[in-house]
Simulated scan of single mutants.
Amino acid sequence: MDINSIKGAAKVKFCGACRLCPVCNGVACAGEVPGMGGLGTGAAFRHNVQALAECRLNLRTVHSVKNPDLSCRILGLDLALPVIGAAIGGIAMNMNGAMTEEEYTEAIISGCRKAGTIGMTGDGPKPLIFDSGMTAVVREQGWGIPIVKPRETDKVIELAKQAAAAGAPAFGMDIDAAALVNMTNAGQPVGPKTIQELEYIKNNTTIPFIVKGIMTPDDAESCWQAGVDAIVVSNHGGRALDHTPGTAEVLPYIAEAVKGKMTVLVDGGIRSGADVLKMLALGADAVLLGRPLAIGAVGGGIDGVEFIINKFKAELSAAMTLTGTAQVNDVPVEILW
Rank of each mutant, 00 (worst) to 15 (best):
A248H: 10
V232W: 02
D267T: 06
P252A: 08
K261W: 02
V258A: 08
R239E: 00
V232L: 05
G238F: 12
I254G: 08
I254T: 10
S234V: 12
T263V: 15
V266I: 13
R239F: 00
I254K: 09
E249S: 15
A248T: 05
V258Y: 06
G268A: 02
M262E: 01
L241R: 11
V258N: 09
I254L: 09
E256T: 11
G269K: 13
G238Y: 13
M262R: 05
A257W: 02
A240V: 04
V232T: 14
G260P: 04
G268R: 01
G268C: 05
G237P: 07
G246V: 08
L241C: 07
P245N: 06
K259D: 02
A255R: 12
A248Q: 08
N235R: 07
M262L: 13
V258P: 07
I270R: 05
T247I: 04
E249V: 09
G238T: 10
T263A: 07
A248D: 11
A257L: 05
P245E: 06
G268H: 01
G238C: 12
I254Y: 05
M262S: 02
V264K: 10
H236V: 11
L265G: 04
D267H: 07
T263D: 10
Y253V: 01
I270P: 03
T263N: 06
E249D: 15
L251M: 11
M262Q: 03
K259H: 15
K259W: 01
G237H: 05
T247D: 02
